[in-house]
Nucleic acid binder design. Sequence first.
DNA 1: AGGCATGTTACAGG
DNA 2: ACCTGTAACATGCC
Length: 289
Amino acid sequence: MPELPEVEVVKRSLEKEIKNLTIQKIKIFDGDLRYKVKNQELNKIVGLKLLKIQRRSKYLLFFFSKKNLMVAHLGMTGKFLIERKNRLKQKTSFYYQADYTKNKHNRIEFLFHDNVKIIYNDIRKFGFIKLERINKNICDIKFLKILGPEPLSNELNFKYFKKYLVGKKRNIKSLLMDQKFISGLGNIYVNEILFKSKVRPSKKVSRLKDSEIKYIIFYTKRILKNAIIKGGSSIKDFSNSTGKQGKFQQHFNVYGKQHEECSNTDCNKIIKKIVIGGRASFFCSKCQK
DNA sequence: AGGCATGTTACAGG
DNA sequence: ACCTGTAACATGCC
């Protein structure tokens, strides 16, 4: 589930549930994630209070008291599931309905006081959870240091874009996927952005017109914002933020739509699927130049 | 059975 | 050293 909008949705729902709560206990069922996690490491935050959660790109940053930071990345299939024991009976809200405890892909469990439990579940184990000390600037953290600007910030503007293209020979899709250029986009949203911008994913960046660059920037921001409002996109294994499904997949124009007709009203071309940089790429050969 | 999957990165080759 | 493309990671689904 996790590109920028999905991570943002997770961040908001998590913060609503566990901000200002203190961790009582952590159980690791399988710490063999992208990086190995050990009890010894995670136990450092037991007894500490969660002050706030931030999102940077696709990373979640959990700020705990005493300058402890927990960095999490969801990889391809990571999720945080929320469970409140004492409210299971009520079933008034989707947050409290499910009993997630028995899922075999539960990797780590965080028990907060107030009977709130957060479960990190990850089928493919490409995600990770890691503790960091906050010494100086969070920007110095290894994972965050190499990231380009947030696409929703003013740092992503025409001037930045244009300047970055100098000397580059790549195609536009790989560039948008490159987290050093802009951080937070992934395969789904890049396909959708390029469709709306009427730019072919294979187009070399050196051949982009100024107007096309402006469209790409505009639709990057618009599509991401819309997706966040819709609760992100839930594909296949659905369950987005915390049991709640996202709705943005209903608005996909090209992703996963090979063999379907182009959604532009004046076009009846069939959406094509090709591979660029090892990833599935979808486009309309008539509308995207 | 084989191909494919929302991400990142180590490595090879230019 | 830089730029670019590919393979690998672990697991499930069609």
